[in-house]
Design a binder for these strands. Sequence first.
DNA 1: CGTTCATTTGAGTGAAGTCAAACCGAGTGG
DNA 2: CCACTCGGTTTGACTTCACTCAAATGAACG
Lengths: 231, 231
Amino acid sequence: MFSAPQVREPASSKSYKGTSVVPAYRESQNDGFERGTIRRVEAKEHVFCEGDPRTHVFRIEEGVIALSKLLSDGRRQVIDFAYPGDYIGLGILNDHIFDAQATCAAKIRCLPASALEQAAALDASLALKLYKAVSAELLAARSLLVSVGQGTAMERLASFLLGLHHRSMDNSDVDVVNLPMRRSDIADLLGLTIETVSRTITKLRSLRVIDVVHGTEVRILDCDRLEELAG
Amino acid sequence: MFSAPQVREPASSKSYKGTSVVPAYRESQNDGFERGTIRRVEAKEHVFCEGDPRTHVFRIEEGVIALSKLLSDGRRQVIDFAYPGDYIGLGILNDHIFDAQATCAAKIRCLPASALEQAAALDASLALKLYKAVSAELLAARSLLVSVGQGTAMERLASFLLGLHHRSMDNSDVDVVNLPMRRSDIADLLGLTIETVSRTITKLRSLRVIDVVHGTEVRILDCDRLEELAG
DNA sequence: CGTTCATTTGAGTGAAGTCAAACCGAGTGG
DNA sequence: CCACTCGGTTTGACTTCACTCAAATGAACG
């Protein structure tokens, strides 16, 4: 469960610094973002907040942006981590209904939402590209839902790590996955507490399935076993 | 939390028999489905299964279709309930990755996926319509994720009932919501067991927040209280 | 009336949550 | 260079909410 939707382009991957991945939807790159402006965001800085007018659409260039919903009592659900090549801010509503917050220093490209939508109204291939991008997001959201709705803590975490592993083929070392986010971000994604995430990672280490360096770098020692544990 | 995406058309609602709702995306109804064939499905019958080739796209005309993922060990996650006006089978993959199963007798309109996609490649407004339909699905999936990831059993069920309440303005009686699905469907949607769903409904009854007739008809007695309970 | 299927209710268990404390690495400043 | 702080992570002890197993109830139908 929780397999990241494998609809990515084969191998045109240009390697970015840091936590880069094969971009999700670029094909001929004719998505209008060539003319977008670059914006840098610090770790923990918000790109936009729930309730903000949806003025821009963004394409991640570097780093990771967490989309999340904050509940009135402080609980938080992370909806998705957006990696380089992913879009955020697509949608049909006038205002954002989620927060977008960098989990680490990031670079994003900005395009006015109106410009994109006007272009899409005239260009069926662009509109279709948006359709496909959102469809990919939908797959990811549903995979996560299955994981969170049915999985144990171990299954959720194993799925999460495998998902990252598939996404980030960037690294020189194939079996090392970066975790460019805090434990709390992972916990809020998986519907767990940081303590449970930590305990489960510890368990995976004691099972010799993974090894963890500096808390942020995970080496997968036994991928088959990890897949079993993912359910 | 778990508010159904409110992007529906104002009031062109033609009332269907049974569990009907205001259709999700019909605008001028130019979605190509006018020429689609009607298919009847019995309660519990599958419209398609995981792994089937994605030959058709469907628009619900009557009844409710549950989209779900079945895990190898029998656990099941319901992803969404599709109501009249909703589409199922949209997406970018060649095969279905979910089961679609009627929760009650239903009527659906079928259109070959290739036809729809060819039409969308030429007609930007149709492509944009697909984009918006999938965006609405994405909102629903994410709302559910928040509910399942962060909510208690009571919060999940209250959100679910409120979501249905908003969707099904069809009924003559505004405060009665139909539950045209089994407890197990609700449980699998909310990531709970049937026992917990049942107990929680009982609790809502004893709190005088709802009243239940024949197990399938819910009268909302105290909507404000229900919203509080939804978190 | 008996069968079947779905739902409700009850009693006991367990996985993940809560609360609290220890640990660790990175800065910072004496 | 070391002491101190600070944010983040890990570990431990205890609690709780939802799960499991089991039985009773209810509704639909031949």
